[in-house]
Design a protein around this nucleic acid. Structure first.
Lengths: 227, 227
DNA sequence: AAATATTAAATTGTTGACAATCTTGGATCA
DNA sequence: TGATCCAAGATTGTCAACAATTTAATATTT
């Protein structure tokens, strides 16, 4: 567990937030394993702060869906079952659909950076660079939600995506059919540019559902995430 | 501001949670007005606790969508604009649709307490008892989400409903067309009993959207909420 | 030996004091 | 007069000590 505490150089940010960011990384990287209890005193010492900020950070992460708080027992890294993961896919599909719907309404024929991202993803897919594709894919979805312009929606989707990463502390990236995935992106993009909000919703939903089906089709071990 | 602190009789619950419950009531009843800053020291004194639990309670309420935290400036009761309220309606519609979908899948032809609730609401509608109807309506929606069996979904919807109540610190209850509202409930219920999940989703979504349209149709002052 | 009660250790919950930051009001200057 | 700067006050952020609770380890009983 790394403890190069750059905590000192905080700028207009509170210690609790910095600790929360650090903890988020520890959790998403698996250094704090799913199901594990987070010992306030130990973590506080490792980070060079007192228990207060660690407590507050834990609560912050609770609202981000990464941590579960139990009174007098402590904060636990959340553990996601297969059934829950499938449930999350469904919720994310519905919310992503709404994001596409709103994006189409607000775009006004101009899809902004999405076009560029799509092109770069196509290149990554052609040259079979899965890591690069994964990275751009994250940006694409982020950008999509930004276009929708609803902070609530963003928070909800981010939280769900976070939770997905807790499934069996495994990194979800994988090597699916990038070309197919990006064709779906193209279709969503077109609907948004045309301003066809209902179509965008349907395609957005279907895109995430396709990801779910890829996951279900694969074994429980081989995880598939790039949509 | 009432301060009959029954905080003493806590049972297997933490002070922070009790304070959070109390604060939630203060906010939803308008005693803590939307936009207002929550002074930790003052509230702590009024409730007879130290600042710690008040702080933690504020963070809890942040994740429930009632409070906004700004570093070094404090916790503010959230303020919802008309545009945001409309946005929330849409999100709630989509999530309620998903709840109905899941409920239909899991019901197995048995709608449980929903039938009973529907009957009681019909009576309330016939005798024009709006308050009674409002109360039962809340239970109906709650029960619906419970049937869906997803704690995530529940949290999200609860959060949205909470936020709606922050719009102009006005109680949202009103005297809409209870009979029409309950006809919509009946249709949802039937779809659930028949196990027609996609139909249940559509009807659930439409039900909330109808509430949104009633709100939009009414003046900005007259609020309409019973769906 | 297994189950239950008891005690000690570890851990979380709460508090009050102090540090860091923001806000307010007044003084200074153009 | 109006704007800017500065200091005092108010408020939040952090800490370390103490209280309440849970967990474990041990003793006791059957």
């Amino acid at each position: 567990m790394s403890d190069i505490d750059l905590l000192a150089l905080r700028q207009s940010s509170t210690l609790s937030e910095l600790v929360a960011d650090k903890m988020e990384k520890l959790i998403l990287s698996g250094k704090l394993a799913a199901g594990e209890r987070i010992n306030e005193a130990v973590l506080a010492k490792e980070l060079g702060v007192s228990r207060g900020p660690v407590r507050e950070a834990s609560m912050l992460l609770t609202s981000r869906g990464l941590v579960e708080f139990i009174a007098f027992r402590g904060a636990f890294v959340r553990k996601i079952s297969r059934a829950e993961l499938l449930e999350i896919y469904d919720l994310r599909a519905v919310l992503t659909g709404q994001a596409c719907y709103l994006a189409a309404l607000k775009a006004g024929g101009n899809a902004g950076p999405l076009n560029d991202l799509h092109d770069r993803m196509e290149k990554a897919a052609d040259s079979n660079k899965a890591d690069r594709y994964y990275e751009l894919n994250l940006k694409f979805h982020e950008c999509l939600v930004d276009m929708a312009g609803s902070s609530r929606l963003r928070t909800m989707i981010d939280s769900l995506v976070n939770e997905m990463h807790l499934y069996r502390q495994v990194s979800l990236r994988s090597h699916p059919d990038m070309a197919q995935s990006n064709r779906e992106h193209r279709a969503i993009l077109d609907a948004i540019i045309q301003g066809d909000a209902e179509k965008a919703r349907k395609l957005g939903e279907a895109h995430v559902r396709a990801g779910k089906q890829r996951f279900e089709a694969a074994g429980a071990e081989t995880l598939v995430e790039d949509e």
